[in-house]
Design a binder for these strands. Structure first.
Length: 252
DNA sequence: AGCACA
């Protein structure tokens, strides 16, 4: 009853996950219900700092499905692992996520044009599921997975051009930071976004706020969208609140 | 809701 087929699967596949290998930026996720959608995996990780892309994989072993999530750094992968490992993914069945560092990084880089997640379906070609090199080879756009085709990137994102009342600006304003938030922590997150220039933190009578300057408005927008509501490790409150700054940061 | 630096 409580015995899950994937238990056997991942124990056999990853006998001793190496949590210390700093090369690995990819997480291996099992414990997923077999009707999980790639979109759900994406939503699970999309607000984690440093998240790059993910893939859902039908292993071909029964209905078993696993996922891989790739980050821009080992550290951010570990942070997401710690935050999400053991989390109840399906409240009905109570089944919990099992997350480990993957044994090898995903070779797949997110291409500018392509979506943030991909589906790999081995259910029909039931061969070659034991080897370590079967992690892809195809960008198979499965017709059964049509959720992503029209909208590409988002499904629950309201993409107004502006946040609050402010005009788009290449400097971002960060609020809802915890008192323990450091410049380094924020810098580390932001440095993973193209065009990131300078960070300035200000302690506004207790709670810190921050300003992050980007080369281009588009790059600031991208970072804002991806980091909005992200929980920093230092946070003792809700996720990041980000808006366009009211004025561009002064050049020095 | 909280937006500085000059």
């Amino acid at each position: 009853m409580a015995q899950q087929p994937y238990d056997r699967y991942y124990k056999a596949a990853a006998p001793l996950p190496d949590y210390t290998n700093p090369e690995i930026k990819t997480l291996f996720i099992s414990g997923l219900p077999d009707d999980v959608k790639a979109r759900e995996i994406h939503n699970l990780f999309r607000h984690r700092p440093g998240f790059d892309a993910c893939q859902l994989k039908y292993t071909g072993r029964g209905n078993q499905v696993v996922a891989f999530a790739t980050f821009f750094s080992h550290q951010s992968a570990i942070a997401a692992l710690r935050a999400l490992n053991g989390v109840k993914f399906d409240p009905d069945t109570g089944c919990a996520l099992h997350i480990e560092l993957a044994r090898t990084n995903s070779w797949r880089k997110r291409k500018p044009g392509s979506g943030p997640y991909v589906v790999i379906d081995n259910r029909d070609r039931n061969n070659a599921q034991g080897s370590s090199s079967d992690d892809g080879g195809s960008e198979s756009d499965d017709p059964s997975e049509t959720d992503k085709q029209d909208s590409g990137d988002e499904d629950d994102v309201e993409d107004k051009a502006t946040e609050g009342n402010t005009q788009a600006c290449s400097t971002l304003f960060f609020a809802n930071l915890g008192p323990k938030c450091t410049e380094d922590e924020l810098k580390q997150v932001l440095s993973q976004y193209p065009g990131f220039n300078v960070l300035k933190m200000r302690g506004r009578g207790g709670l810190p706020v921050a300003f992050a300057d980007f080369e281009e408005i588009e790059q600031a927008t991208k970072a804002m969208e991806e980091l909005q509501d992200t929980q920093l490790e230092s946070s003792d409150r809700g996720g990041l609140h980000i808006e366009y700054a009211r004025s561009k940061m002064r050049k020095r």
